[in-house]
C-alpha cells in the first residue's frame, strides 16, 4: 500500500490565538514537503499534530485513509521523527543509543548494520564512545544515523540541519532526495533552501494564511 498522510481543515488555537485555520495537508509516497514560516507560526505544532501527538485540535488527520487517533499506532510504526532535541543519551554510546531505538520501534537490525550506519554518517571508530564525549555536530550525526539505520517510510524532521557542517548538509539533502525517490515521504521544517532536493513542495505558514504550492 502506498503511503498517504493527509489532514483536512486543521485548525489549532493556542492561548487565544489561531495558529492556523482551514489547513489542508497531503503527503504521499515519493514527496518531500517543506513547512516554512517565521518563528512561532506553528510549524512544530503542525508536525506534532500530523504525528498524532497533539489531539485537541479541530479537523482530521488520516493515515492510509484511516483517521487518527484510531490509526495512531500504525502511523507511529512507520514514523521516524527527529525533534529539536537530539534524543541521544549522553552516558550511552552511539551504538547503544541506536540499539535502543531499534528495540523501541520493533525493528531488529543486527549490530553490523547499525555500525555501518554510524560509519556512513562519519562516525566510524566512535561507536563505543559515550556520546557525552562527542562534539555537538557529532551528536547530531548520531541522531541522523537513525535515518540510515531505520527504514521507516515517513520521515518527519524538525530543523534537522542544526549544528551540522556543509558536507553534512549536502549529504543529508541527498539522503532526503533518495528517501523520497525510493518511495518514502519526508515532512521537514528548515531554513535551508534544500537546493539539492528535486521537486520539493512547500507549505508556507504565515499567521492565518497558508499557501500551499
Amino acid at each position: 500500500m502506498r503511503l498517504c498522510l493527509e489532514a483536512r481543515q486543521l485548525a489549532c488555537e493556542r492561548d487565544g490565538r489561531w495558529l492556523f485555520r482551514g489547513l489542508d495537508v497531503v503527503l504521499k509516497a515519493g514527496e518531500v514537503l517543506r513547512v516554512e514560516g517565521p518563528n512561532g507560526s506553528g510549524k512544530t505544532t503542525l508536525l506534532k499534530i500530523l504525528c498524532g501527538q497533539i489531539a485537541d485540535v479541530d479537523g482530521e488527520v488520516r493515515w492510509q485513509g484511516r483517521a487518527l487517533p484510531r490509526a495512531r499506532a500504525d502511523l507511529l510504526a512507520n514514523l521516524l521523527y527527529l525533534g529539536h532535541a537530539p534524543g541521544i543519551k549522553a552516558n550511552l554510546s552511539a551504538l547503544e543509543n541506536l540499539r535502543w531505538y531499534q528495540a523501541l520501534g520493533g525493528e531488529g537490525r543486527p549490530d553490523a548494520e547499525l555500525e555501518a550506519a554510524l560509519a556512513e554518517v562519519g562516525l566510524a571508530g566512535f561507536e563505543d564512545v559515550p556520546t557525552a564525549q562527542l562534539s555537538a555536530g557529532q551528536k547530531r550525526r548520531v541522531t541522523l544515523a537513525r535515518l540510515v539505520s531505520s527504514r521507516r517510510a515517513l520521515w518527519v524532521l524538525d530543523e534537522p540541519f542544526t549544528a551540522i557542517d556543509v558536507a553534512g548538509v549536502a549529504a543529508l539533502e541527498r539522503r532526503l532526495a533518495s528517501h523520497a525517490a525510493s518511495g518514502g515521504a519526508v515532512l521537514v521544517t528548515t531554513h535551508h533552501p534544500l537546493s539539492n532536493v528535486p521537486g520539493v513542495r512547500r507549505l508556507t505558514m504565515d499567521g492565518q494564511r497558508q499557501v500551499a504550492s
Binding site: N78, A171, S178
Partner: peptide, 26 residues
C-alpha cells in the same frame, strides 16, 4: 558524512502495521 551515500540506499520500508515487540521495547 563525507562518503557519498546515494549508492547504498535501500528502498524505504513498505508501509506496515503496528505489530508486537512491546516486550522487546520494554
Amino acid at each position: 558524512m563525507n562518503t557519498p551515500m546515494s549508492g547504498s540506499i535501500e528502498a524505504a520500508e513498505p508501509v506496515r502495521e503496528a505489530g508486537d515487540g512491546l516486550g522487546r521495547a520494554m
